[in-house]
Amino acid sequence: MGIYEILFWLLTIMAISSALGVILSRNPISSVLFLIVTFFSISGHYILLNAQFLAVVNVIVYAGAIMVLFLFVIMLMNLNADVEPQKGRLLQLAGVIAGGILFLVVLAALKSATVLPLEKASSDIGLIKNLGRTLFTQFVLPFEVSSVLFLSAMIGAIVIGKKEDTNTIPLKGK
């Protein structure tokens, strides 16, 4: 059992246990922190898979930007008191069974799938040079379209989140 396998199992256990922590913890703040741990372990998997640049981008974009956005929203709403009402036991059991059955079905379907072995020699496809060449030769049009997507997302977030003072009807939730 080499260092690669030890790191794989360590990162796998960390990812799955902290993903379970996301859905099981009562406090939304600790859910966010568990999700950040999950993203870090997924970045570790990227490094093991020779996708070094994606690992860095994953840490910066997900664990840096998106999770900070989640933390801001949770702290803005003052949600860190654990007063969240829970679904009924029956619904929770049904959700767990549905997810577990989906896992079993895909696991049984993919158990006998024929796959290639992971390549050992090509360790530089994840470097920024090759990625940039692929991105700007084969995928130029999706790259430009994604810039339009970002622009529309920015405008949409501003338009939706704008405070409208005139005809807001405050309605108390029950």
Binding site: L91, G95, G99
Partner: peptide
């Protein structure tokens, strides 16, 4: 697949 199914379970069992 395990991470995906954990995500599905969380979507189904939480209310927040």
């Amino acid at each position: 697949m395990a991470l995906f199914c954990i995500g599905i379970m969380g979507t189904l069992i939480r209310r927040n």
